[in-house]
């Protein structure tokens, strides 16, 4: 790891101020991606602004049909939140299957979506749930937030403070994890609401998370696995690497979509 300067922020304002004064600073939340990346010298921020001690970023709340998850909520906290488990168990299931127990004790939802790894789990949930990403500057709809590979609508000095979404009627998530890394080779989050169904896919797209309109249309008519019988996504635009070809991922997307619907219909 190259040299860096560590700062601990105690408030959102302090964090953004420290970053503004740094030459090439980065926020660090759980650090489960950033620290390994720095160790490999693939990232070399001049300054690290630690967000773990900012009270305003913590906590999960459910009020008037709306879920709000603080950006600093760890995967373990989301997975184990009993209220969230009652109203939206799919998001708890997703969080419970990120990385491993030790990573889940550190990694946060804010860090995950800010990083926008094309194989991360949370982006699929945010997109399918039509979530809102709250930042130190504004509110951003998930539809506008995830721009491309490791790229989001966030500005350099903008900090995610929370995400929120309306409790869905039904939701389900299924992923096929890479046996070594546990990142999704394909992960599908399905959400049913009175006005229709949204299907978002992670792990498979060359440009990161994406929606599948034909699956959404079929499931909006009949929210049942049978609606996806014979349904397929084209391999064009899907990732191809040593772990899986684009064709294989295309098949996984259809299979995981069916499993996600099964999970949602519980």
């Amino acid at each position: 790891m190259y040299q860096t300067n560590y700062h601990r922020a105690s408030s959102i304002d302090e964090a953004t101020a420290i970053l503004a004064g740094a030459e090439d600073g980065k926020f660090v939340a759980g650090g489960q991606t950033l620290i390994p990346t720095m160790k490999q010298r693939l990232a070399a921020p001049s300054d690290l602004v630690d967000l773990r001690h900012i009270g305003d970023l913590k906590g999960v709340s459910v009020e008037n049909g709306e879920v709000r998850i603080g950006a600093g909520a760890t995967h373990a906290e989301v997975a184990g939140d009993s209220t969230l488990g009652t109203v939206s168990p799919a998001i708890c299931h997703l969080a419970a299957h990120i990385g491993d127990p030790h990573v889940r004790h550190m990694g946060t939802i804010g860090g995950s979506i800010a990083n926008n790894d094309p194989a991360a789990d949370y982006p699929a949930a945010m997109l399918a749930l039509s979530a809102t990403v709250h930042t130190s500057k504004r509110d951003i709809a998930a539809d506008d937030f995830f721009v491309g590979l490791f790229e989001t609508a966030l500005e350099e000095d903008e900090l995610i403070t929370a995400v929120s979404f309306t409790i869905p009627e039904k939701a389900g998530y299924a992923k096929f994890p890479n046996p070594a890394s546990r990142y999704a080779l394909a992960g599908v989050f399905v959400v049913k609401r009175p006005d229709g169904v949204r299907v978002a896919v992670t792990g498979a797209g060359e440009d990161g998370v994406f929606r599948v309109a034909p699956f959404e249309d079929a499931l909006s008519d009949t929210f049942d696995v049978s609606a996806l019988e014979g349904a397929a996504v084209p391999a064009d635009g899907l990732m191809s690497d040593i772990h899986a070809s684009a064709e294989y991922r295309a098949n996984l997307v259809a299979v995981m979509a069916k499993r996600a619907v099964e999970a949602a219909n519980g």
Partner: peptide, 11 residues
């Protein structure tokens, strides 16, 4: 439980 190779001493 955390991985101490993935956390700074300062953290």
């Amino acid at each position: 439980a955390v991985k101490s190779c993935t956390m700074l001493a300062a953290q």
